[in-house]
Design a protein around this nucleic acid. Sequence first.
DNA 1: ATGGTTGATGGTCAA
Length: 262
Amino acid sequence: MRLVTWNINSIRLRFPLLARVAEELKPDVICLQETKVTDDLFPTVECRALGFPYLGFHGMKGYNGVAILSKRPIDALRMPSWCERTDCRHLIAHIGNTEVHSVYVPAGGDIPDPDANPKFAHKLDFLRQLTAWYGATYTPDSRVVVAGDLNIAPLETDVWSHKQLLSVVSHTPIEVELLNAMQGSVPFVDALRHFIPPAERLFTWWSYRSPDWTKNDRGRRLDHVWVTPALKDSLRSAQVLRDARAWTQPSDHVPVLVELAD
DNA sequence: ATGGTTGATGGTCAA
């Protein structure tokens, strides 16, 4: 199974780029975040025309929104909600004998202080709740893929400057600690770092707020694919489609591909 | 330290 995760930042605006991702990466499953579309306006006909007959989506007006597009039958869909909100940040599809999760962790605002910044507090709470739930719901024998924009870059090599980003939301010690706790809850295997050495720099996001995203390569690895230990030996390859950041009218995130043996 | 850009929306808010 070839699985792509991508924060598309509006599926309607960037549908032509989604078609390009489908054509170039030939995924069997695509997990999307920030679809930014309500369910009644989701482009179901267009997705099916791309070769994905089986669709799950969970969206709201203007913000957030997750989706899973599949060439293989989706047997069941679930949409957990966290922090007593209906934020459309989590979608689960049962595909064959495996669960695929599309997750969009709150970005957390600009100030890395939960007392001063409710958005940061929400991000931390979201991570704590998800961690408790994953730990209580799954075991190492579960067949689960967690894919999405987790909005945290855990390793020093996941950011362009570890020192300069220590107090920047996405790379603060408290966030990294909570993300590591979430990964350890089952535990999950980091599929990207399974193939790409942790010593090597690896980014999946480059800010829009730079006139030239390639200048000094100031990126971060915010998008992740994790698998349960039961799937570890099935991992075949992983790839970040860095080129997609240079496409016309790009998302600030690029697609990440992980290939698993069936 | 600050500001920079993009998207949905229709004034700003979120990222």
